[in-house]
Amino acid sequence: MKRVYAREEYCVGCKLCEIHCIAAHSKYKNDLIKTFKKDTNPPVSRILVEENKPVSFALQCRHCDDAPCTKACIVGAMQKDPETGIVTNEEDRCVGCWTCILVCPYGAIQRDERGHKVASKCDLCSENGKVPACVEHCPNRALEYGEEPFYLAKGK
């Protein structure tokens, strides 16, 4: 399946990925100014830039083939789509027990405590059906969206 791969050597730590992730998942879809100025309760970013200067890279859900979070979910809200392979959390069913956060080996799931508590995670912008917002707006191609990691693809 297509995943987002980080290229730490080109991550400049600007966090534009986080900003665009928030906008992509806000009620003012992709309108940065309204998202940040009018949305009193904006979503959390589902991508996180890990930084220990000069090293930095952006991390989000790996959409594991055998995703532990889907097994740990006590209400069946966390599911892996058998066709697309995308792991999503059905927020209406999520009860905010945080078991998924506990089992995620990457630390890619976060608490979203606006209103109804839910686990928040990358959905690969599956609603948009396009390139994920973080990849699209990375200014230095430090995020790539593809079937396999760049270091395998380049070797071919």
């Binding site: 400049v12 600007c14 966090k15 534009l16 900003i19 940065l32 100014i33 940040f36 100025k37």
Partner: peptide, 13 residues
């Protein structure tokens, strides 16, 4: 100020 969202990209860059 009407456009700035205080995202700090400028600060980081």
């Amino acid at each position: 100020k009407d456009r700035c969202i205080d995202c700090q990209v400028c600060v980081r860059q």
